[in-house]
Design a protein around this nucleic acid. Structure first.
Length: 378
DNA sequence: AACTCGGGGAG
DNA sequence: CTCCCAGAGTT
């Protein structure tokens, strides 16, 4: 049974009045610059606002407009993206910027349908840019909207998958006002973030409670939307990593583009096989990945790092090259100083490994903080 | 339709 | 610990 027209007006009025008073001044709300909104939407993908703010300011400072982004090297985009995760987004962002500059005269398309043709623009971001920046009346459905609309309209289906998702998009579209639909959608998102939260929603403080079917009709409004099925247990992987030094440099390699942490730099290493010690794995991985052999390997420590779907335990060893230096490295490998490596895009786990090595200068000679006596000795 | 793809913060 | 986040691309 669809809601009547009056309920739409009531929700709209209550929500927009609340938003007018409570709207937070995020930097991407300073104006309606489509570029700034676009960058924010991409950074906010699967990421909370608080985590994005720093990355956003850094990105805008380095790439203030589309032209700067389109002219940048991929590696410098990745470097600015470092720590934000989902690094494929950074490559898609740059690709889209180049396409907009070369094919579209440097202006973002104004319609969601056209935006959706560009790399990195899925249904949500295309609709979000079209509606927030250009005022198109098209539903931009993301996690907050799924939750808010599920509760307002008491949607009991599977909100995560195709048919349920499409139904929610239709219901969101029905809520959109003719006047400034983008503002309304921002209000839905902010309500979902601050009031209509996944757990412990603040229904007592919700401006739309009177128009919310879950609140009026259910003992537990927070049971909607229906929880998706449990994800499988994350495997715990162990890996060995080698800090191989040669003079004041260490061996680093760039990961292949496209996959996990694509295009980022890291230390050589890999999985510890069944029945293998971490040190044996370190030696084997070093040989397989580089063709090089280390002398004695000293254990430096263990770094733990959690990804969304797996946790890893990284055993770090340090050692130096045995025998004569190789004539040449493989194309994706370099001898770099610690500072040089830190200037390239590296994953958080590699940052942790370098920090660990820096705190253990005895076991990792040449990688610790420079000591005055050694650096400026007689 | 199911998988992959990071990192961080709340509870 | 678990859950979840202004999702998109690939298979």
């Amino acid at each position: 049974m669809p809601d009547g027209r009056a309920i739409f007006r009531a929700r709209r009025r209550a929500l927009l009045a609340w938003f007018a008073a409570e709207r937070r001044p995020w930097p991407w709300r300073r104006d309606r610059d489509p570029y700034r909104i676009w960058i924010a939407e991409v950074l906010l993908q699967q990421t909370r606002v608080d985590s994005v703010l720093g990355h956003y300011e850094r990105f805008l400072a380095r790439f203030p407009d589309l032209d700067h982004l389109a002219r940048a090297r991929e590696e410098s985009v990745l470097k600015v993206w470092q720590g934000a995760g989902y690094y494929g987004r950074a490559r898609a962002l740059r690709s889209a910027a180049r396409e907009i500059r070369s094919r579209l005269g440097g202006q973002l398309p104004r319609r969601a349908r056209e935006l959706a043709e560009l790399p990195g623009f899925g249904p949500y971001i295309a609709a979000a840019v079209a509606s927030l920046a250009f005022g198109e009346r098209v539903p931009a459905l993301e996690a907050n909207g799924v939750r808010v609309i599920s509760r307002w309209t008491r949607f009991e289906g599977d909100a995560g998958r195709g048919p349920g998702r499409r139904e929610l998009a239709r219901r969101l579209a029905a809520e959109l006002p003719r006047r400034d639909p983008g503002r309304f959608q921002e209000a839905v998102m902010e309500l979902g973030e601050r009031i209509c939260r996944p757990r412990n929603p603040l229904c007592g403080a919700c401006p739309v409670a009177a128009g919310c079917r879950a609140f009026r009709e259910l003992a537990h409004p927070d049971r909607l939307p229906r929880a998706r099925p449990r994800r499988s247990q994350p495997p715990r992987r162990r890996a060995a990593v080698v800090l191989l030094t040669r003079g004041d440099r260490l061996l680093a390699q760039r990961r292949p583009p496209g996959g996990l942490l694509g295009g980022l730099w890291e230390l050589p290493g890999g999985r510890i096989e069944e029945g293998e010690s971490p040190e044996e794995a370190a030696r084997r991985e070093l040989r397989e990945e580089t063709g090089l052999t280390a002398g004695r390997l000293l254990p430096v420590g263990i770094v733990r790092h959690a990804y969304s779907h797996l946790r890893v335990e990284l055993h770090l060893f340090s050692g130096s090259l045995a025998g004569v230096p190789p004539a040449r490295l493989r194309p994706h490998q370099r001898w770099l100083t610690v500072d040089e490596l830190r200037r390239r895009p590296i994953p958080r786990a590699t940052e942790k490994l370098l920090d660990l090595a820096g705190r253990a200068p005895a076991a990792a000679a040449g990688t610790g903080p420079r000591r005055r006596s050694a650096a400026a000795g007689p």
